[in-house]
């Protein structure tokens, strides 16, 4: 099986976000970057599929030279090949989708895995957009996946339940937490990954489809009525829920 896994480089979940000098992007000074947590489920699912059916897992990332770090994590987990579409410029999701589509057309994978969302822009966008560019079926936010011959059955999380969705290979799947338990790379594999080759590609240029024109740290004014656990204080809170919040 020919498996492609798309990964992205994102700030660690504990990062305190500050707005950069340009006023439209994050100040990345001192920020630790990681493999997007949802992409770990995507990598793991790709590896398990290879272990069952044989084949090759290729990891691809669109980003700066430093994104090799994230590709090396994927190599340490066990992917066979890593591709970096290298760019130092600002780019939008359309650029990522077009460039991954270019590589996918060459590679012709049976299945493409992604995380359900990147935890930087939280767009949930790439799986569907890429699928359309490649004219492939896709299923997003998958928490259980069964593949038998060419038939794909997936459980997809929706409000208040699950959809049972069917499609066939080739297809695109975006991974939800719960799909599997991603493996931790072992130290010898981390060491070996450091010297493995990473295939660098020059991106194709695209129109900028969206422009960020401002970034701010939201500061919601909260009422901040913090009281004790006495009976009268609890009653005071209930009164506020009724009179101010009008919820009861």
């Amino acid at each position: 099986m020919n498996i492609l896994v798309c990964i992205s480089r994102v700030p660690d979940t504990t990062t305190r976000i500050l707005v950069g000098k340009d006023g439209i992007s994050m100040d990345s000074q001192g920020v630790k970057f990681i493999v997007n947590p949802y992409d770990e489920y995507a990598i793991e699912e790709g590896l398990r599929l290879r272990e069952k059916n044989g084949g090759t897992v290729t990891a691809i990332c669109v980003g700066p030279d430093t994104a090799k770090e994230q590709l090396r994590t994927a190599l340490a987990m066990g992917v066979d090949r890593a591709v970096l579409v290298k760019t130092d410029k600002y780019f939008d999701s359309y650029f990522v989708a077009k460039n991954i589509a270019e590589v996918a057309k060459e590679l012709n994978p049976d299945i493409i895995f992604l995380g359900r969302q990147s935890i930087d822009f939280d767009s949930f966008q790439l799986p569907s957009y890429l699928a359309e560019l490649l004219d492939l079926p896709s299923i997003s936010v998958v928490s259980k996946l069964t593949i038998e011959a060419n038939k794909v059955t997936a459980e997809r999380d929706i409000e208040g339940g699950k959809e049972i969705v069917e499609t066939s290979i080739p297809c695109i799947i975006s991974a939800q937490k719960g799909l599997n338990e991603p493996r931790y790379p072992k130290l010898p594999d981390i060491m070996k990954a450091k010297s493995k080759p990473i295939d660098e590609k020059t991106p194709i240029e695209t129109d900028t489809k969206v422009s960020v024109i401002g970034m701010e740290i939201p500061s919601r004014k909260r009422i901040g009525k913090i009281l004790s656990d006495s009976d009268s204080d609890i009653e005071e809170i209930i009164k506020s829920l009724h009179e101010e919040a009008k919820i009861i």
Partner: peptide, 21 residues
């Protein structure tokens, strides 16, 4: 759940820009 999956597909048909959420 439906919109987050469907909207980018429609956007891609026009190669249009899309903003979610």
């Amino acid at each position: 759940a439906t919109g987050l999956e469907l909207a980018p597909r429609v956007a891609a048909k026009f190669e249009a820009g899309y903003t979610s959420d």
